Computed example of a mutant assay.
Amino acid sequence: MTVDTIVIGAGVVGAAAARSLVEAGSRVLLLEAFDRGHDRGSSHGASRIFRHGYDAADYVQLTVRAAAGWQRLERQTGRTVFDRTGALDHGDPRALDAIAAAMTAEALPSERLRGSEAAERWPGLRFEDDVLFSPGGGRLRAADAIDALLDTAAAAGADLRFGVRVASIASDGDGVVVTADDGEHHAARLVIAAGSWTPGLAGGWLSRNGAALPDVRVTEEQPAHFPLLPGPASDEGVWPSFVHHPTDPEVPSVYGLLTPGEGVKVGVHGGGPVVDPGDRDRTIDLVRLERLQRYVAEWVPGVDASRPASISCLYDTTPDSDFVLDRVGPVTVAAGFSGHGFKFGPALGDVLARLALHGERAPERFRLAVASPG
């Protein structure tokens, strides 16, 4: 088969890229190794945090683009994918100062509170003394969002194929040939957005063309949902998304948000064991789970810490936790989303489409360390 652009991966980044590419007029073939909506990678599940809470201008600007993209997707499909519940950061005042300054620079509203004030407003949570509230943050309905991205890509003409594994990638004149389970596919350009599988798929091409990804560490993380307790925090509508930036070095960075019908999801941000993404048994580590339960019992009093429903998911993390969004010849690579990429979906799709079609570079921090041919 011959098309303009092949996309590998149907998680949030691949789905968004396929949609942006086909909307830009490219004939797109999307190949996904697993079933639609599978749970083997990083994009599965019902909910993800949306927040503007970064301390760097380029990230905050990307969140603004993403928010507009999610809203456009809602208008286009008539579906709700973004619930503006607000987002909280609390803990290290230096971290909160930097986040507040970066949001203010982009004219994003925020509110600084003392911990006691925050506890009155959000009784399901316990806070350190410094709290920052962002009304523009909230919760993404993750599975619904990916479905909406894929459906709109297909409606615009993209060919979506699931259960099709890619075996190899090679040059084909000025373009590429992708050999997959269903045969050979030729295209002028290729976007690899396969999450934790991207280093294995892209590594050979990059090395043959004088480039290399940074070290991407694939780890298995295990957040859990905790059911709400009766009381003032039992109303699902009162729960914002939250991130704890601890002042105590013994306490890890932790995130959380309510998933409607499932409880409050709480997870340690990274730190899980290194795994092979294609060969993990998903056995829950009881020591790590008990540690999470102790944290939840102390800091999330509105839930029942004794009744966790654990989740297994993957992080693909770069040394500096920055994404890789770059192009080498006809191949564009998206990798290393480091546990915080989902919220950016539509913005990343737009960045990748512009990079693949027109060579428009992503911000400096997202580029490979070598000069990439345009």
Rank of each mutant, 00 (worst) to 15 (best):
L314V: 06
A187S: 08
G183H: 12
R307H: 09
P308H: 14
L190A: 08
S207T: 14
V216T: 06
L286I: 02
I192N: 01
G231K: 04
T198M: 07
G175M: 08
D316L: 14
L190V: 02
E298S: 15
G204M: 11
G210F: 02
R291I: 00
G231F: 02
G210A: 09
Q222F: 12
G271E: 04
D279K: 15
Y315H: 12
I192T: 01
S234E: 07
E236Y: 04
V268Q: 13
A224S: 13
P223Q: 13
G256H: 06
V264I: 10
V287R: 09
E250T: 15
V268Y: 06
V274W: 03
D215G: 08
L258H: 09
P246M: 14
P277V: 13
G173K: 10
P246Y: 14
C313N: 04
T283L: 10
V251M: 12
G278S: 08
V176Q: 06
A297M: 04
A211C: 08
W197G: 05
H269K: 11
F226C: 04
G195W: 03
P308Y: 10
P246F: 11
G195I: 06
V243Y: 07
S171H: 14
G210C: 02
E298Y: 06
G256D: 02
P227L: 14
E220L: 15
R280E: 01
T259M: 05
V264A: 09
W299Y: 11
S310H: 02
E236T: 04
V287A: 13
D281F: 11
V296C: 11
A212R: 15
E290W: 06
P301I: 12
G231Q: 03
G272C: 12
D248Q: 11
R280M: 02
L289H: 03
D281Q: 11
G256S: 07
V191E: 02
